[in-house]
Simulated scan of single mutants.
Amino acid sequence: MLVDILTELALDGKWKSDTGFKSGYLKVIEQKLAEKLPTAGLNTTNIDSRIKTLKKHSMEINEC
Results as ranks from 00 to 15, higher is better:
K52C: 01
T53H: 05
L42R: 10
T44S: 11
L54I: 04
K36N: 05
F21C: 04
I47T: 03
L6K: 03
K56G: 07
T44A: 11
K27Q: 11
G20N: 13
Q31H: 07
L37F: 14
G13L: 08
K56C: 04
V3S: 02
T19W: 08
E8T: 08
L42C: 01
V3C: 03
G20V: 11
L54E: 11
I29E: 04
I61E: 14
L37S: 09
D18E: 14
L33K: 00
L2Y: 06
L42P: 02
K14C: 04
L11C: 05
L11S: 03
G24E: 15
K16C: 03
E8M: 10
L26A: 03
L42N: 01
F21W: 13
A34L: 06
V3I: 13
E60H: 00
Y25W: 15
K14Q: 13
I29S: 02
S58L: 14
L2P: 01
A34S: 13
F21L: 10
D18C: 04
A10Q: 04
K22S: 07
G20S: 12
K14D: 06
N62E: 15
K16S: 14
I47D: 02
Q31S: 07
A40N: 01
N62L: 13
I61L: 14
K16F: 05
G41K: 08
L2V: 12
K22E: 14
Y25R: 01
I47W: 05
I51H: 00
T39C: 05
A40D: 08
L9W: 03
L33M: 15
L54W: 07
M1K: 06
K14S: 04
I61F: 07
M59C: 03
K52V: 01
V3G: 01
I29W: 03
L2R: 09
K16N: 07
V3N: 02
K16D: 07
T44E: 13
D48Y: 02
D12I: 05
H57T: 03
T45R: 11
K36Q: 15
T7D: 11
R50Y: 11
L26V: 07
K14I: 01
T53N: 09
N46W: 15
T44L: 03
L11N: 11
S58Q: 09
S17T: 14
E60S: 12
S23I: 05
L9S: 08
I61N: 04
N46M: 08
L54G: 12
A34G: 07
S23F: 06
G24D: 15
L54V: 05
E35S: 12
Q31G: 00
A40Y: 06
G24N: 12
S58T: 07
D12L: 06
